[in-house]
Structure formats: structure tokens, C-alpha cells
Design a protein around this nucleic acid. Structure first.
Length: 648
RNA sequence: GGGCGCGUAGCUCAGGGGAUAGAGCAUCGGCCUUCUAAGCCGAGGGUCGCAGGUUCGAAUCCUGCCGCGCCUGCCA
């Protein structure tokens, strides 16, 4: 809605500048003034032209404003300040366009976008750091879909790595337990929690008994060979934990299209194929001396502008095994359809809405959708891995795939740490200097951190207290559902409100808050809007036909009110806000928009009792505004993966 | 040492060439007989780390410095 008129103005202005001054490349920048009294749009164009035309900005602005002519939907152009041109929209026209939902169809341009996120090591329960990853990735995917893109969500499962091996070591050597005993545990509800503790115990054991690392070696070899009890144990553990993670994420409305697994990357020899390509193009070479003698390495110059001479990344170890980065290069090639190989797939399970989550296999097993072959790839991975992501992209470049390298985006974000206060609450001992820091890094290895399910449970518990006190008469099942929706809203919003490169110092008090800049605040505004409409209908009245009752003139009359106009304007910007957030890759922008829109509505709600309005035209208009706001906020909430509860 | 990021109100964070620097929390003071107060209104609170530079204009861009974090593995 908003961006269409914005574009119309920009086009008209650049055409005029071209014709009038013969300036071709004039970027008719259109901004939103910081003060609403300046109008809806502002153009600092005159400042840009001042030098070229050797004229005062103010004079140019006056000239432009008077000569520009009529633009559909624009009521007036005004010169302000030292040379701004402020645009005032035709409110009646704009309101009517919003009512008719003019041209809301997103254009489905470009090929498939692959978004990879979550990627949790399948050896223990998910924690809050993983939540940030999954919520960011899921929201970004929703944003892209909302702008018309085709999106495939992948969740890479490293089921053959050291972390899984360590848990296997725990079960097999430390405890020790039989496969049957572990299978029994794995079918229980708390397996991921159990492994969380076991993993911490194994890590601690290594520290006190360095020789125990040979257990890990034996396990890794067994996993790689793919047979024997240790390998079976590894699969058992990883498969069960993956299901636990998917269950956790589904609580937050997060799901996936396909789970490519490392075991298939090995089994189907993805690496061998990539290795041949890399050797052939001389992207990597066998080091003959120095600390990396016997390894295949990528020279530092490939992935870093000013790397030191001896700075290079080992891709294949001297024992012939491939590092994670190597496998990741193969995987990245596959995502673009450049590897010349594919996985086989089987359905892992079908969700309630019919959506099927697929997982890779090494054997053909019937029909499956076409996965991979993306034209853009976003890897949602925390910023600590930027070095490795650079190496992966450099791998593509070295193979001559510059276009795909350009389309490989490390969608990075900063870590989730713990506030000192929360550490104390969790009983984590802090050193003298840690206490002074704003945050403390979590350590999965030590078993320190906040488990995702614990946090969700706690949020639900808190929401239930509130819901129960407000709606004691409602059925329990319903109250539970509402509490869960509020909890999810609070959690997702909390993970989204920070910009990606802000370290979140996780604090229980802040995360559990339902007031102010929080998810429930936004949900509450949506609930209030729906309450008005519901109450209205409960009185036996039917909503008027807005299309006939509110013509352009009526819109113009009502929107003369600055309050109404500002709310309408804010609500109409939903698509613009989502599109901008998607384009800048910053989900926090969408969250911020939702919050600001909710703020605007809450003020409106307080000042204008809709149902009690006496003037018929105004009442119809207020009802429409309420309905319009609700639909625009619902849309935004959908993109954020939040639901508006039936009541709050 | 090198790379990336950060430094804005008491706290947590937005803003990232443009008009009078914003929000939430906290503090203080108001508003529930009205469509639910998870709300609304108001007040106080700022050397935008420091110093230079670029220009009509710098919190924003550049350089240097100071402080903090992450990365810099034949772990992932």
C-alpha cells in the first residue's frame, strides 16, 4: 500500500528532474520525516541537486514543488526547512485504497531461496542460543515467503561428529550401558536432558583423564566405518535427539522442509566428489612442510584479503579424514545443485497441517520433492563461525562459482550469553572478573546454560498465572492454549527484538516480562481490536458494508483527524515494513514495526470508544479502522511466528 | 599480532549523512462505573567512548586512540 505510492512519487520526481534539468542519475530519495507534522514523505532532493545546479537548495525545492504537477494520491507538496520537499498525501484517496486492498499481491520473483538454520548438534537438549538461531531463521523464512519468494528450509544434522561421539563414549564406556538399555532411555521423554548431563560428565572426565580421549577416537572411527555397536549407538542417540529438537522447535511454530544429515554426506561420498573438483581446480594443495605437513589446505589468501603467508586452513587432515569445513563445502555445492550428486530422502513425519518433514537417506526409497538447487543460500550460523563460512565461500569461488559465492550469505548473529544475575539464579559460580562483565558466555560442554524447554515451560507457567487470574471461568484446556500462545509470543519476540549483531545477555527477569516492549504487548493490541469487533457483534449488530458505507469523501472527512490518519498510515505500512526487513535481512525491524503499530493502536483504543460512538459515519469508520488494524497486525504477527490469542 | 563486532539516558536497547537523538524497563506523579489497566497520560534523566578529519550538515562516513567481546584448531 504505502510503498506503491512511494514508488509513484519517486518515479514522477526522477522523470521530472531528467526532463527539467537533464540529470539522469538523480536518486530521488524519499524518506519518512521524523515528525509527522512534516507530512508523510520528505525529499531531500534539492540538497543533492544544489551543487550540480549551483543554486540554493531552497530555491530548487520551490521550483520543483511548483513545477512537478499532479501525482495521483498526493494532495500537496511543501517546501520546508532549508530545502526539503514535504509530501502530503490525499487522505481520502489513501484511506479508500487501503479499504480496497489495492495491489497487495507480492511478486514471486527469483528462484528458490534456501535457508539453513537450527543445526543443533544432536547430542543434548537445545538451549537458548539455539532458540535465537531457529527463531531468526524461521522468521527470516517467513519474511521471504511473505514477499513472494519460494523458500526451502533446511536443518543440517551433524550426526557423526565429535559431540555425538562423546555422548556415545558416556553410554558405552563411562556408564556403561547396553544398546537395549540406551534404546529404552531414548524412547523416554527426557533423553535430551539426560544426554545434556552425560555430555557434561564426559567432558569433565576427559579433563581429569586425558587418556580417555582414545575412547572418542575409537568411537569416531566406528562411526565413520558405519558398523558395529558404537556406530549403532551413535545413530540411536542422534536420531532420538533430533526428534527431541524437532519437538522443541514445533512448540514455537518452527518447522523444516528437509534434514540433510552428515552421515549421508559421508556415505554418498559427497566429499570425495568435492575433493576431486577442488584438487582439479588447484583450490587446495597438499602441504609438504611446516605444521600442516601432510594436510590438504586452502591458502589464507583465498578467504582473507590480507592473510599472513603461513595462514591456511586445513581441509583434509594428515590422517586423510576431512574436516567439517570440507564437508560444508560439499554441502554448499549441493545446495546450489553444483555437486552433481543428490541425497535420497524419506519422510520423517507428517505434521498436523499435512506438512511433511523429509530426512536424507543413502538408499532410494520412493518419490520425494526436489530439494536443493537453490539460487540463493542463507546460512543462519552465529558470528563466531564467520571464519569458517568465509572458507566455504572461498571454496566456491576457487571452483569458479563466483555467482553462487555472491549468493551465499552467512546470516550471522551474535551469541546469547547469560546476565550475571541469571547466572547467580542458576547457581553458576562466577569469577571476580565475570561478575563485573555485562554477560557471561554459556558452556554446553560444562552443562551450563538454559535449556530451551525449561524456558518455554517457565514462560507458560507465568502466562498461566496471569490468564487464570483474568479468566478463571474459562475452560482449562482453553486457558492452557492461550497461555502457550502468550509464552511463544513472548519468547519469539524476545529473540527477535534485538538486532542480529547485538549480544543478548539473557536475563530471566527480562525474558519473562509481559509488559512494555514485549510479544504479549503486541498480542494484547490484536486481542483488544478483536474484542471490539466481537463485542459489537454480540450486541446483535452486524458489521456495516465498509466498501459502500465509506466512500472517498467519507474517508477524507474522518481522516482529517490527525489521530486516525496516523494510525491508518502506520497500519498501511505492514507490507513495506516486512519487505524492508526482508531486504535488509533484519527480522528485528519487523518486530519493531509490530511494536510501534501496537503502541499506536493502544493509544487509539484508549482515546476512542468505538462501540459507544454516536455519529454513524464516524462509528462505521472506527469499526473499519479497528478491522483494518487487526488484519494488518495479524499479518505482521504471522511473519513473526506469533499468534493472537482468543483473549488475554 | 591480525580479522569481525560493539561503546547512545541509571539499566537493556533502537536510530547508522538531514529537521528538536528515541523506545522499553526502573524512579516519581496521574487514569479502571466505559470496547479487559498485560493498558493509557505526564515528569525527571544525554559530553551519542575520546581526539582529529571529510561537508551546506556528523550519533551516523574516514583516520587515530581508549575500553569491551568474539574469532584467529589437523573441534564443530
Amino acid at each position: 500500500m504505502f510503498h506503491q505510492i512511494e514508488k509513484r512519487i519517486r518515479d514522477a520526481v526522477s522523470a521530472h528532474v531528467r526532463a527539467r534539468y537533464g540529470i539522469e542519475d538523480a536518486e530521488a530519495a524519499v524518506e519518512e520525516p521524523r515528525q509527522s507534522s512534516f507530512g508523510e514523505l520528505a525529499m531531500p532532493l534539492a540538497f543533492q541537486l544544489a551543487k550540480k545546479l549551483r543554486k540554493a537548495p531552497k530555491a530548487i525545492a520551490a521550483e520543483l514543488a511548483s513545477e512537478l504537477g499532479a501525482i495521483e494520491g498526493v494532495a500537496a507538496l511543501e517546501v520546508a526547512g532549508n530545502g526539503y520537499i514535504n509530501v502530503r498525501l490525499d487522505r481520502g484517496y489513501y484511506g479508500r485504497a487501503a479499504l480496497e486492498g489495492a495491489g497487495e499481491q507480492p511478486s514471486a520473483a527469483g528462484g528458490k531461496v534456501i535457508v539453513e538454520h537450527t543445526n543443533i548438534n544432536p547430542n543434548k537438549a537445545a538451549h537458548i542460543g539455539h532458540l535465537r538461531n531457529a527463531v531468526l531463521g524461521d522468521t527470516f523464512a517467513r519474511m521471504l515467503r511473505a514477499t513472494g519468494r519460494q523458500v526451502e528450509v533446511q536443518n543440517y544434522i551433524d550426526n557423526t561428529g565429535v559431540q555425538v561421539a562423546d555422548v556415545v563414549v558416556g553410554f558405552h564406556y563411562l556408564e556403561p550401558r547396553s544398546i537395549e538399555a540406551v534404546r529404552e532411555l531414548a524412547s523416554g521423554d527426557w533423553f535430551d536432558y539426560l544426554c545434556w548431563d552425560l555430555y557434561a560428565r564426559v567432558s569433565a572426565h576427559y579433563k581429569d583423564h586425558p587418556e580417555a580421549v582414545r575412547w572418542r577416537q575409537a568411537t569416531l572411527h566406528a562411526i565413520e566405518a558405519g558398523d558395529g555397536e558404537l556406530a549403532e549407538l551413535a545413530h540411536l542417540v542422534a536420531d532420538a535427539i533430533v526428534l527431541a529438537h524437532l519437538r522443541t522447535m514445533r512448540r514455537l511454530g518452527i518447522t523444516y522442509d528437509v534434514l540433510p544429515r552428515e552421515s549421508e554426506i559421508l556415505r554418498l561420498q559427497f566429499w570425495a566428489t568435492a575433493f576431486e573438483q577442488l584438487k582439479e581446480r588447484k583450490a587446495i594443495h597438499l602441504e609438504t612442510e611446516g605444521k600442516n605437513a601432510g594436510c590438504w589446505v586452502m591458502p589464507g589468501s583465498a578467504y582473507s584479503g590480507d592473510a599472513a603467508e603461513d595462514d591456511s586452513k586445513v581441509i583434509v587432515r594428515s590422517d586423510g579424514t576431512v574436516t567439517y569445513v570440507g564437508k560444508d563445502i560439499a554441502y554448499q555445492l549441493w545446495k546450489f545443485g553444483l555437486l552433481g550428486k543428490d541425497f535420497h530422502y524419506r519422510p520423517l513425519f507428517r505434521e498436523d497441517n499435512g506438512h511433511v518433514v523429509w530426512v536424507s537417506t543413502h538408499m532410494p526409497s520412493g518419490e520425494a520433492p526436489l530439494f536443493g538447487r537453490g539460487s540463493e543460500v542463507y546460512n543462519v550460523i552465529d558470528s563466531r563461525q564467520s571464519y569458517l563460512q568465509d572458507v566455504v565461500t572461498a571454496g566456491l569461488r576457487a571452483l569458479g562459482y563466483n555467482e553462487q559465492a555472491d549468493k551465499s550469505v552467512h546470516f550471522s548473529y551474535e551469541m546469547v550469553a547469560l546476565s550475571p544475575r541469571t547466572c547467580v539464579e542458576l547457581g553458576i559460580e562466577l569469577s571476580e572478573e565475570d561478575r563485573k562483565r555485562p554477560y557471561v558466555e554459556v558452556s554446553g560442554r560444562k552443562g551450563l546454560g538454559v535449556k530451551a524447554d525449561d524456558l518455554i515451560d517457565k514462560l507458560i507457567e507465568n502466562a498461566e498465572v496471569e490468564v487464570d487470574s483474568r479468566h478463571p471461568e474459562a475452560p482449562e484446556e482453553e486457558r492452557a492454549r492461550v497461555a502457550a500462545q502468550i509464552a511463544v509470543g513472548a519468547l519469539r519476540y524476545f529473540m527477535l527484538k534485538y538486532t542480529r549483531n547485538t549480544v543478548i545477555a539473557f536475563d530471566f527477569q527480562e525474558a519473562l516480562s509481559f509488559e512494555g516492549d514485549t510479544g504479549p504487548y503486541v498480542q494484547y493490541a490484536a486481542v483488544r481490536a478483536r474484542n471490539i469487533l466481537r463485542k459489537y457483534e454480540e450486541r446483535g449488530e452486524r458489521l456495516p458494508g465498509f466498501r459502500t458505507a465509506l466512500d472517498r469523501e467519507a474517508m477524507g472527512r474522518q481522516l482529517a483527524s490527525e489521530d486516525f490518519w496516523q494510525l491508518l498510515l502506520a497500519a498501511s505500512k505492514a507490507d513495506t515494513a516486512i519487505a524492508r526487513a526482508a531486504a535488509s535481512g533484519e527480522p528485528s525491524h519487523a518486530a519493531r514495526y509490530a511494536f510501534q503499530l501496537a503502541q499506536a493502536f493502544n493509544a487509539f483504543y484508549h482515546d476512542y470508544p468505538v462501540i459507544h460512538e454516536q455519529d454513524p459515519e464516524k462509528k462505521t469508520f472506527l469499526l473499519w479502522m479497528t478491522d483494518y488494524f487487526r488484519s494488518q497486525l495479524d499479518r505482521t504477527l504471522g511473519v513473526l511466528g506469533m499468534e493472537a490469542p482468543e483473549y488475554m
